[in-house]
Simulated scan of single mutants.
Amino acid sequence: MGAVLTALGTMGAVVALGWALGRWQVLGERAAPVLARVVFTVATPALLLGTLAHADLRLLLSRTAAATWGSTALVALVAALVLRLALRRAAADVTVATLASSYVNAGNVGLPLSVYLLGDPVAVVPTLLFQLLVLAPVAFTVLDGAAAAAPPGAPDDVAAVVPWALRAQAVVRRTLTNPIILGTLTGVLLAALPWDLPEVVFEPFRLVGAAAAPLALLAFGMQLAVPRAPGASAPRRDLVVAVALRSVVHPVLAWGLGSALGLPAHALLAVTAMAALPTAQNVLVYAMQYRHGEALARDAGLITTLLCVPVLLIVSAVLA
């Protein structure tokens, strides 16, 4: 558990620094949105390109990947159905809340956890691949569609009068120009090539991509320092759904699917531990980019990070 505590302690220190910067406005009032935009448009695409370009795509065919992908897809589906059908939330808000329920902090917590607890850095790759190849593109397509149907400042019913063909064209254009999707697709294409590019080509991407995690954590801390206006809190029922799915339902589903698929003990521990990770800070970055669900993404990230330690302690005690 030293890896978990070290990773969470490091993240907490950077978030605290971001809070201090935001509390005293050291970088100005608009610093948090600017940092979030840098993470979204530059640092994260560079990180994804470099990471996926060196990924072994054969992992997509393993039983471990099946358990990871299946449990994550089920969590995302349950979240979307509950939020849309039971709570009647708008599509963009449903998308952010679904990401808060299913998109885990695989980089900052998952990678050190897979190295120090599991002794296998590859354990985090199926989780990363599913998030980058499935969750993120689907989410951005929905969010871009909502933005294309109702531009910023437009009335809520403007989508009803926009021709379907124009909306579809706008969605396709925004999706294909989304920097995270472009970085993901480029990385997968490079991984699928029968030959490798010289490593020197990837050094600029590694350098810029290394800024993604600390900048996202700083933006998260700065967002926590912003005084909450009346009505700016996350909807309580939405937050309960996201936290329950993230911290309880997902690990249980991953354990159940892994057991059903006959995973050996070490692989079952890896799948369950990855499913117990907290909500990624990148979800807040995405929410800030699209101006939907920011309070929910912020609160879900904070609460699930606090719950991560006891949940992982239980998982390791039962399965290790």
Score class of each variant (00 low, 15 high):
1 M>N: 14
4 V>A: 14
7 A>W: 00
7 A>Q: 10
10 T>M: 11
10 T>F: 15
11 M>S: 04
24 W>V: 10
29 E>V: 10
35 L>P: 03
37 R>S: 12
42 V>Q: 06
44 T>F: 12
46 A>Y: 02
54 H>C: 10
61 L>F: 13
64 T>C: 09
75 V>S: 07
80 A>E: 10
81 L>C: 11
84 R>K: 09
84 R>Y: 07
88 R>I: 09
89 R>Q: 14
94 V>Y: 09
95 T>Y: 08
101 S>M: 00
103 Y>P: 02
103 Y>N: 01
105 N>R: 02
109 V>A: 10
113 L>Y: 03
114 S>W: 06
117 L>R: 11
118 L>C: 08
121 P>A: 02
122 V>E: 12
134 V>G: 07
135 L>Q: 11
136 A>M: 15
138 V>L: 11
142 V>D: 06
151 P>R: 01
152 P>I: 07
154 A>E: 14
158 V>I: 13
159 A>P: 02
163 P>Q: 14
163 P>F: 13
164 W>A: 12
165 A>Q: 11
166 L>P: 00
171 V>D: 07
177 T>N: 13
181 I>E: 09
181 I>R: 03
193 L>M: 15
195 W>F: 15
201 V>W: 12
201 V>G: 05
205 F>K: 01
205 F>D: 07
206 R>V: 10
208 V>Q: 01
208 V>W: 06
208 V>M: 03
212 A>F: 00
213 A>Q: 05
214 P>S: 13
215 L>H: 08
235 P>V: 11
239 L>K: 01
249 V>K: 06
252 V>F: 07
254 A>M: 05
256 G>Y: 03
261 L>W: 06
266 H>K: 13
275 A>W: 08
283 V>C: 11
297 A>I: 07
297 A>H: 04
299 D>S: 12
305 T>S: 14
306 L>A: 15
308 C>R: 00
312 L>E: 12
313 L>M: 13
315 V>H: 08
317 A>R: 10
